[in-house]
Amino acid sequence: MALPGQQELTHLEEFMEGVWKQNPVFVMVLGMCPTLAVSVSAVNALAMGLATTFVLLGSTLLVSLMRKAVPKEVRIATYIVIIATFVTVVDYLIAAISLELYEALGAFIQLIVVNCIILGRAEAHASKNPPLRAATNALGMGLGFCIGLFALGAVREILGAGKLFGVALFGPDFQPWVVMVLPPGGFFVLGGWLLLFNWLRRRQGGALKPAEGHVHG
């Protein structure tokens, strides 16, 4: 996001913010509840990522369009209503596209409402920027979230089932690591990715802060 007094970012930079520098999963550690719960397979993880991106994009656009009209007293209430609307929409869309996916994701689709990335973006970025810029930033964040979820889901599916996108990788005799699709596996894999990123950062010079951010839902 553009801090006051900072040089305005180009659209590409704006986009890359969320993908890399402020990656919501690996750097900011945001929106963990749905991330961990549904990332048992790459498909579920990507579906959740896309659903979140859709909500993120829709709500930031609407918030940005209405940014001049919304009085600050009711702004959070407005944002929440807008976000809940898009979540309801995406909930119905997923049920219409694939019931199987809908049941795999369960109540976690609706829990996107309390995903802090979305409210955070609405409050910190979309309410201060024109639609195009807000949308670019939201898309970047969404893509970053998808990448993060995919990284988690892929590891858990490969080790936990020996498959990726349902395709067996190691032949029929593979011994699945059941723990990976269980709750502890979710914590371990995400923790492992964070460790890897911390370690890489440290090797790159250590000037950057460790990947510890604001931990929110």
């Binding site: 009209a69 609307t85 929409v89």
Partner: peptide
């Protein structure tokens, strides 16, 4: 007024999504 506008816009969005997907779901 603002809340009214927001509620209307959101209501329209939700109802149209509901109606649009009802048959498929």
């Amino acid at each position: 007024r603002t809340l009214g506008v927001v509620a209307t816009v959101c209501g329209i969005l939700i109802v149209s999504a509901y109606q649009g997907t009802l048959e498929r779901v």
